[in-house]
Amino acid sequence: MSSSSWLLLSLVAVTAAQSTIEEQAKTFLDKFNHEAEDLFYQSSLASWNYNTNITEENVQNMNNAGDKWSAFLKEQSTLAQMYPLQEIQNLTVKLQLQALQQNGSSVLSEDKSKRLNTILNTMSTIYSTGKVCNPDNPQECLLLEPGLNEIMANSLDYNERLWAWESWRSEVGKQLRPLYEEYVVLKNEMARANHYEDYGDYWRGDYEVNGVDGYDYSRGQLIEDVEHTFEEIKPLYEHLHAYVRAKLMNAYPSYISPIGCLPAHLLGDMWGRFWTNLYSLTVPFGQKPNIDVTDAMVDQAWDAQRIFKEAEKFFVSVGLPNMTQGFWENSMLTDPGNVQKAVCHPTAWDLGKGDFRILMCTKVTMDDFLTAHHEMGHIQYDMAYAAQPFLLRNGANEGFHEAVGEIMSLSAATPKHLKSIGLLSPDFQEDNETEINFLLKQALTIVGTLPFTYMLEKWRWMVFKGEIPKDQWMKKWWEMKREIVGVVEPVPHDETYCDPASLFHVSNDYSF
């Protein structure tokens, strides 16, 4: 037999072997998808029940369902290793196997995995149920939502704001400190077992692309791009910072340095994350009609249902689908009040099986009107990829998912749209002054938050990498806050605090 014939037969044999492996992989994935749908849905439903009704029974049910899901994933991840990716030609099959071969938290021992889940659930519970009591009246206690958040959004009393700011960190942050220390250790162990340098590197892996249509993007490039983007917006932020400082000097004349940092408790919310609520103090042309339409919403008797129905109309107007019937029947759109304790931070849920929901303790404000559009943007994205195989139902990356939500809320905030839905009067006219007011309001929300987020994530990356010793977490946190964000702590904090974890995203294990 000629050498060319042998070569042809060899190629046929290799192709047949690849085809056999690929067919086996497809069969394996079909079985996995069928089983995963049910187990993931049960786990998601148990998590939803806990988040909307925080009880010991629900946390136990959530843990049990989560353990079943984790055990299943660990088993299936091991089985998926049997299919070598280099022998799979079908890109859809390869991407699913690649996702499943990534072990995630299931790489930890059973004891450590359970401990990590306990830590995460405990931190979430402390954050959502933590109360601050009035020292003069111990029976008068406030949760973060709505009590403390209400103070931080609306109060102009310097000392009341300081009390709310400090009490939240003292009551909740200190409880979270030992848990967060354990969390860092276990998450790093999980990341390294998955061949990442640390948990920050694991997060950045979400943005990594290897040879898809000839395109590559590394975790290191992400760090470079983040640094570059921050340097680009820094001059604009510094101008905004100086303008806000001048306006705060008028409101709090004896508390603000004309050349120094801004006190952290005066920036519009509990964390200084969004400066939106400073608009009334900083509006350049106050004689113009108010483009913050909160009062109009209240006057027109809007409620949470109306807010979300208007958001749905907005999405339908640009060619996107209505929310499902189940969305309206199962979402929690208002604070249950004293009936039950719930996690009030707005979140969009894709539970699986076409079950999409939003959890939000909606208030009738323009801020929540825009947040509703943001969260519904997440749901629209979830619905758009719902037909994909189970392992591919995700956003391109976390940042893109947020961008989908944010672009919709930005569009909904324009005076033209607000006028079209009757929240600005029919005779409202846009001119240079109203446009400047609008742009300032947008800058308070968007530009003001960028250094906050950059600095927070930089601190977390450094902590996970071990570049900040545990006994210097708070020292470095406030050094970076002053240097990068231009914000100063109103009272000193020692290493018993854990100020970063006083933010939902940190205590609940979300990256930005």
Rank of each mutant, 00 (worst) to 15 (best):
S19Q: 12
S19C: 11
S19H: 06
T20W: 15
T20L: 11
T20D: 10
T20R: 10
T20N: 09
T20I: 10
T20M: 10
T20K: 08
I21N: 13
I21Y: 13
I21E: 12
I21S: 11
I21W: 13
I21Q: 12
I21V: 05
I21D: 13
I21C: 12
E22C: 10
E22H: 07
E22A: 11
E22N: 11
E23D: 03
E23T: 01
E23L: 03
Q24D: 15
Q24C: 15
Q24P: 09
Q24R: 15
Q24H: 14
A25I: 02
A25D: 14
A25S: 09
A25M: 14
A25K: 14
A25P: 14
K26Y: 11
K26F: 08
K26L: 04
K26N: 06
K26G: 10
K26C: 06
K26S: 00
T27M: 00
T27E: 15
T27I: 06
F28H: 15
F28W: 13
F28D: 15
F28I: 15
L29H: 12
L29R: 08
L29Y: 05
L29A: 13
D30P: 14
D30W: 14
D30E: 00
D30A: 13
D30G: 14
K31H: 10
K31W: 00
N33F: 14
N33T: 05
N33W: 15
N33L: 13
N33P: 15
N33C: 01
H34I: 13
H34C: 13
H34P: 00
H34V: 00
E35F: 13
E35P: 15
E35L: 09
E35H: 12
E35N: 09
E35M: 01
E37V: 13
E37Q: 12
E37N: 14
E37R: 14
D38E: 11
D38Q: 14
D38V: 15
D38L: 14
D38N: 09
D38P: 15
L39W: 08
L39A: 04
L39M: 03
L39K: 00
F40D: 01
F40T: 12
F40C: 03
F40P: 13
Y41E: 15
Y41Q: 13
Y41D: 15
Q42L: 00
Q42D: 15
Q42E: 15
Q42R: 01
Q42H: 01
Q42V: 00
Q42S: 13
Q42C: 00
Q42K: 02
L45Y: 12
L45P: 13
L45A: 14
A46I: 13
A46M: 09
A46V: 12
A46G: 10
A46P: 14
W48I: 06
N49Y: 02
N49D: 04
N49I: 11
N49K: 07
Y50K: 11
Y50M: 10
Y50R: 11
Y50T: 11
Y50N: 12
N51T: 14
N51V: 10
N51I: 11
N51Y: 05
I54A: 09
I54N: 11
I54L: 09
I54P: 08
I54V: 04
I54T: 10
I54S: 11
I54H: 11
I54C: 10
I54W: 11
I54K: 10
E56T: 05
E56I: 01
E56Y: 04
E56G: 07
E56H: 02
E56A: 06
E57Q: 06
E57A: 04
E57Y: 04
V59Y: 04
V59T: 05
V59C: 04
V59N: 05
V59R: 05
V59Q: 09
Q60I: 05
Q60L: 07
Q60K: 03
Q60M: 03
N61H: 05
N61E: 01
M62I: 11
M62T: 10
M62G: 13
M62Q: 09
N63S: 12
N63V: 04
N63A: 08
N63M: 03
N63Y: 06
N63H: 03
N63W: 09
N63P: 13
N63R: 05
N64K: 07
N64M: 05
N64H: 08
N64C: 07
N64G: 07
N64Y: 09
A65V: 02
A65W: 00
A65L: 04
A65I: 01
A65K: 02
A65S: 12
D67R: 03
D67N: 06
D67G: 04
D67A: 03
K68D: 13
K68L: 11
W69T: 00
W69Q: 05
W69Y: 09
W69R: 03
W69S: 05
W69A: 06
W69F: 09
A71F: 02
A71C: 02
A71I: 04
A71H: 01
F72T: 11
F72W: 01
F72C: 11
F72H: 00
F72I: 12
F72V: 12
F72K: 02
L73H: 09
L73R: 05
L73N: 09
L73M: 09
L73G: 10
L73D: 12
L73A: 11
K74G: 03
K74V: 05
K74N: 08
K74F: 06
K74A: 08
K74L: 05
K74C: 02
E75C: 00
E75P: 02
E75M: 01
E75K: 01
Q76S: 04
Q76A: 04
Q76K: 05
L79S: 07
L79T: 00
L79N: 04
L79H: 09
L79R: 01
L79A: 10
M82K: 11
M82W: 11
M82Q: 13
M82C: 00
M82Y: 03
M82I: 14
Y83N: 13
Y83H: 15
P84G: 10
P84R: 12
P84E: 09
P84F: 12
P84Y: 11
Q89H: 02
Q89G: 05
N90M: 00
N90I: 00
N90L: 00
N90R: 00
N90E: 00
L91M: 03
L91H: 10
L91C: 01
L91S: 02
T92C: 00
V93M: 13
V93D: 12
V93C: 09
V93Y: 10
V93N: 12
L95D: 03
L95S: 03
L95M: 02
Q96E: 08
Q96S: 11
Q98V: 01
Q98F: 02
Q98C: 02
Q98T: 01
Q98K: 05
Q102S: 03
Q102M: 02
Q102N: 02
Q102K: 04
Q102L: 03
Q102W: 01
